[in-house]
Amino acid sequence: MYISAKDEHHQPSPLKFDIPKGWPKPSKNIFAKNKLTEEGFQLGRKLFYDGNLSADGEVSCASCHQQFAAFANYDHDLSHGVNNALSIRNAPALINVAWMDLLHWDGAINHLEVQPLAPLTNPIEMGESLENVLKKLKKDTAYIRMFTAAFGDAEINSQRMLKAMAQFVSSLVSSNSKYDKVMRGEAQFTDYEQRGYETFKRNCNGCHKEPLFTDNRMRNNGQHLNKKLDIGFQAISLRSEDSLKFKVPTLRNVQLTFPYMHDGHIYSLFQVIDHYSKNIDTTQTRLDPILKKKINISNKERIELVYFLYTLTDSSFVRNNRFAADHITTIKNPHHPQLVN
């Protein structure tokens, strides 16, 4: 491969990370030591869609985080990794991750840049060693070219790879749903949606806080301990008061991200609402105080609430070509769920 002198001195083009109007600033500035650039983003995108990063060459980040499902794993309660091994948790949607202090359902990951190390090296996810991943990248002329474009020279190391991935993943910002348009005065809720919004503000906003639809905190929403004995945040913090706490997920694009909860055991939004109004395990001592008071939602309100949640679907996000694979993807199951709006 020939790299021209011009390429070597080429400066990557800076990108501005736009914070949508009225949104809080991310508490951690993940771009302070990782300058967002077009070339870094493009490299991150290529890595995200590259199955070659896994042990068997089949599993990419995008196998479990599919764009048409807002980067969740469409219709999978638990995700399949290499050799069809099943992970113990549901793949969450990747939306507005730049605002998150802690990652994973149990808050185990403390920085977006180190997150990919978990799936890459987990034997039941991508099952590859970091050493091998880098070896493969160093052999690939397309990567040599793209690392040079992004970082100024052809060195390929773990830090550069991880920073590029962080640039792509943190760029997955969804802020153009019907809800956003209503807030910006560009659209109007239907009566159903408006009443659903009221119900939402009364019962859900305490944790799924606007405009991110999460307060990014670890909370116990009254689920039973599952068969995998997944105690959530307690396993990380080692404090009994954190028993069965999980990170509050965003509800943006929630219509597309089923199944729901950390183990994907709930399949529909109606059932989710039934969980909150009927099935909360009130015997749990660590149940979030907000949920100790019974939530009353009538059947009519339940339907309205779901209509409101549908307004959080951002079709421009799931169809944005910038976030899509360049050409071939490893997605084997390309059913599109119906989009409203």
Binding site: I30, A108, H111, V114, N157, K163
Partner: peptide
């Protein structure tokens, strides 16, 4: 421990980083 991807002695390539619990 919380500053993201590092190089040198702290490169995760040295297998001295917990990937599942940063």
């Amino acid at each position: 421990n919380c500053s993201g991807a590092q190089t040198g002695a702290l490169d995760p390539l040295n297998s001295m980083f917990w990937t599942w619990n940063s």
